[in-house]
Structure formats: structure tokens, C-alpha cells
């Protein structure tokens, strides 16, 4: 019960508070690590470990979905037909993107998967979502995705969805 003791106690309590403030921000990269481990939110190419064979005994239907947040600026379209693939098979598909305005635009796509358990099994070798897309006025481009749905995907998972949402970057000009 003396001033020194009080100082010591309050110092370490203050340190605890400061550490927890930092922890609040640390949750952001921690969440990214979590998302990366579960495949929920990857935006870099993945290597194909342990996936040298195609499992021809079954097929998985992949539904392709496109969403766009600024519909006035872009037309963003997925292939209308779903693709049926064998797990382990290398697949290439193309999305379409068109700049509807008279100005150059920069944007980026964010991938998402459903069901969540499928996310970890999408191995993207190359994807337009890894990069920003720059489009000249009224330019129309085809955006390829090269991926493998690995053999680990559960047997009862017969339909999975690959979705991209396209966002404009920076402010509208």
C-alpha cells in the first residue's frame, strides 16, 4: 500500500492496455493468415503439391458467377454455362469485362467460393484477380483463370461456385 507499488501496478496495467490495442490491429493480419490457411481469400498463385494425377472417376460441376459493384462503369460477365471438371484436371475459363465509359478505368476482382469447404481446394495457377485491370475507354477484354480443383475435394461435393466481384479502384473520374 505505497506509492511505488501503485506506480508499478498501474504501469503494467497500462502496458496491458497498450498491448491489447496493438492486438486489435494485429487481428487484421491474423485474419488474413486464417483466410489463407482455409483458402477463403487467396490472391496469389498456389503451387500444385501432391496433385499429379487426374481423378477421372468423378466430375464436379463448377458454377461461375460474376458480380459488379459499379454497374454503370463496367459490364462484367461470367461464362453462362457451368463447367464439369475432373478433380486434378487443369481448367481454363474466361470472364469478360467491358469498360462502358469514355474514360480509362482501373479495377480489381475479388474471388469468393461456395461452399466454404471448397475454397481450400481451388488451386489457381493464374488468375486475373491477382492483378489490377486497366481498361481504355470502351475497351472489352477477356480475362482468363487457370486453375485446378485438387483431388482432396470431398466426394459428396458435386457442385461448387466460383464467384468474382469486380470493384473500381480509386475515385470515379
Amino acid at each position: 500500500m505505497n506509492a511505488n507499488g501503485n506506480q508499478r501496478t498501474s504501469t503494467w496495467l497500462t502496458t496491458l492496455a497498450a498491448a491489447m490495442f496493438a492486438f486489435g490491429f494485429a487481428l487484421v493480419p491474423l485474419y488474413d493468415v486464417f483466410c489463407d490457411l482455409t483458402g477463403l481469400n487467396r490472391d496469389a498463385a498456389q503451387s500444385l503439391v501432391n496433385n499429379t494425377q487426374v481423378d477421372a472417376s468423378r466430375r464436379v460441376r463448377i458454377e461461375l458467377v460474376a458480380n459488379v459493384q459499379d454497374g454503370a462503369l463496367w459490364r462484367f460477365a461470367a461464362p453462362r454455362q457451368p463447367v464439369d471438371v475432373h478433380p486434378g484436371e487443369l481448367v481454363q475459363i474466361e470472364y469478360e469485362l467491358e469498360n462502358l465509359t469514355g474514360q480509362p478505368l482501373v479495377g480489381r476482382a475479388v474471388p469468393s467460393y461456395a461452399p466454404l469447404a471448397a475454397a481450400a481446394h481451388f488451386k489457381k495457377i493464374d488468375c486475373f484477380c491477382f492483378r489490377e485491370q486497366r481498361l481504355a475507354p470502351h475497351e472489352k477484354v477477356r480475362l482468363p483463370v487457370l486453375f485446378v480443383l485438387d483431388r482432396g475435394v470431398a466426394r459428396d461435393m458435386k457442385v461448387v461456385t466460383l464467384s468474382y466481384t469486380f470493384f473500381a479502384l480509386g475515385k470515379r473520374t
Binding site: A17, M20, V110
Partner: peptide, 30 residues
């Protein structure tokens, strides 16, 4: 002491997203 700073962090990130162009909670910026 353990959780009020976490709330402070969360609302600070909100404030930054609203005013300083960060994208903690905005899918458009990752």
C-alpha cells in the same frame, strides 16, 4: 483493460476507412 483497447482499435479502423481511404473492411481494397 483487455477489451476496451480492442474496441478502440476497431473503431479507429472504421474511422480510417471512412476518412483516410484505407480498406480494412472494404472488399474492394482487399
Amino acid at each position: 483493460i483487455a477489451v476496451m483497447p480492442v474496441l478502440a482499435g476497431a473503431v479507429t479502423m472504421l474511422l480510417a476507412d471512412r476518412n483516410f481511404g484505407t480498406h480494412f473492411f472494404d472488399a474492394a481494397g482487399g
